[in-house]
Amino acid sequence: MKLNRMIRPTSTRFFLAGLLFLLALTAVTFQPASAQAPTPSDDEVNAIAKHLYCPVCENTPLDVCPTVACAQWRQQIRDLLMEGRTEQEIRDYFVARYGDRVLAEPPRYGFNWLVYVLPPVLFLAGAFVVYRVLRGSYRPVQQVEAPPPPPDDDPYLKRLEEELRRREQEGQ
């Protein structure tokens, strides 16, 4: 649902780059006049707010949070954008004041690496186990050429098994 973020932020960054360029130009030619920068649109604010989480309403992204506190945060983003800050700078601003919890994901340093490293490691371990199981039980087939059906003493299972084989043959 939120993958269009991948598209949106780039366009924002593009816009910001342009904005910065303009600001740089004005800074050279005239006096710094950031107040004259156009008011950032709601979409530009939301594109950044989407990635931030306000501690007042936990687990709700800032762009959709209805509380007054969050509305103030969005206004803050707008103000910072008007000052010409980049998305990264704005995030850093919020992290400095409110802590790492405002980010949608733990920042990638120190202890937090665990959150990114452990799932793939466990998954690979699982994949290795599956591989071993497949290999381990694959070998016996070569010893016994034709795979014998598993011995069943349960007549019900036998019947099922037979039904299944029949259907499998029917199908082909």
Partner: peptide
């Protein structure tokens, strides 16, 4: 891991973190 990591982080580093949709997605 995503659900419990904030607790783990708080336990070991005292830092509160959010594990949000980007991580899971």
């Amino acid at each position: 891991w995503g659900v419990f990591f904030p607790l783990i982080s708080e336990l070991f580093t005292g830092q509160k973190v959010t594990v949000g949709p980007p991580f899971y997605e």
